[in-house]
């Protein structure tokens, strides 16, 4: 019977000041959605960075006048290297053919007998972390003139990603405080609406906890519904941005695969975060009710 009473009280409170509750929910939803945008950008950039890194290629160019023997020596060493998954040799002739195909007219002056292009090796590397080390090693091979790889660019991307993480944390904290304040205000209003009843409950020996429960439940519900609503907002805007991006950027096949929404656990976490926030901030505002004389 107590439980029923508490449920009824909670629903009744919400009904009586439903305007405030709606405002509370909407603001919570927007605050959580703002945070969600950052989290989403961060997760997607990180995902993108991983996708790019898994396709990392290292190209080693030999000196143009390297002998057959040097070529096969380097080839052997690369094949034996544990960091290398796959090696492909691009011979001088192949390089010239590729070159001609790319720059048809300008390449006319390159003649068969006077090929300045070096032999090169294109390698797939096992793990992205060891790329830097591997590149340094290959640079010291005799006969190798130049090693090219995309690590520098990826490092920059990693820095951007970490900035986003920091941004998400800072913005998340600010918005959490803002949301907590809003929920607290809503709970304060509901305490005010119920002040008569609270006074009477004290008179008949209700404990502070019993009096506080409907408000804490209200705060938690507010936070959870706000969290759910923010998920809907995020999902809708994510889908529309995604379809626009896919239309605009047609040269990158991996894009569709790289763009992902929150996985289910993260989504639930967002709702849970809203709930915890709501619960916590209403606890702060009913703290004054618990264990107080009057």
């Amino acid at each position: 019977m107590r439980v029923w009473y508490l449920v009824r009280e909670t629903l009744n409170n919400i009904r009586v000041h439903r305007g405030d509750v709606v405002i509370g929910i909407v603001t919570t939803a927007f605050a959580l959605a703002c945070f969600g945008v950052f989290l989403l950008l961060y997760l997607n950039l990180q995902h993108l960075a991983e996708n790019l890194q898994s396709g990392i290629e290292v190209i080693a160019y030999l000196e143009p006048d390297a002998s057959e023997q040097v070529v096969s020596e380097v080839h052997q060493r690369l094949r034996r290297d544990r960091a290398v998954v796959e090696v492909r040799v691009i011979s001088k002739e192949q390089a010239l053919r590729d070159f001609r195909r790319h720059f048809q007219r300008d390449a006319l002056f390159l003649e068969e007998g006077n090929n300045p292009l070096p032999v090169s090796f294109v390698m797939k590397v096992r793990s992205p972390e060891s790329v830097g080390e591997f590149v340094e090693r290959v640079k010291r091979f005799s006969g190798v003139q130049h090693v090219q790889h995309s690590q520098e660019w990826l490092d920059k991307l990693a820095i951007v990603v970490s900035h986003f993480r920091l941004g998400a944390m800072v913005i998340g904290t600010i918005l959490a405080v803002a949301t907590a304040t809003i929920i607290r205000n809503t709970v304060h209003l509901s305490l005010y609406t119920r002040r008569e009843e609270i006074e009477i409950l004290r008179l008949i020996g209700a404990t502070g906890r019993f009096i506080a429960i409907p408000h804490v439940v209200e705060g938690a519900m507010l936070g959870a519904v706000g969290g759910g609503l923010s998920l809907v907002l995020l999902k809708v805007s994510f889908e529309s941005v995604k379809s626009e991006l896919l239309q605009a950027v047609q040269w990158f096949d991996g894009l569709e695969r790289s763009l992902t929404f929150f996985p289910v656990p993260v989504s639930l976490l967002l709702v849970l975060a809203g709930m915890v926030l709501g619960c916590g901030s209403s606890l702060l505002s009913v703290r004054s009710l618990i264990n107080v004389r009057s």
Binding site: E197, E199, R202, L203, I204, G205, T207, G208, N291, R293
Partner: peptide
């Protein structure tokens, strides 16, 4: 203050100003 409600449950209080819902 935590124990006060339990003592109050053994006392019936009829306030001067009714205090009904």
């Amino acid at each position: 203050a935590r124990d006060l409600p339990y003592l109050r449950r053994t006392i019936g209080f009829v306030p001067q100003n009714f205090q009904l819902l």
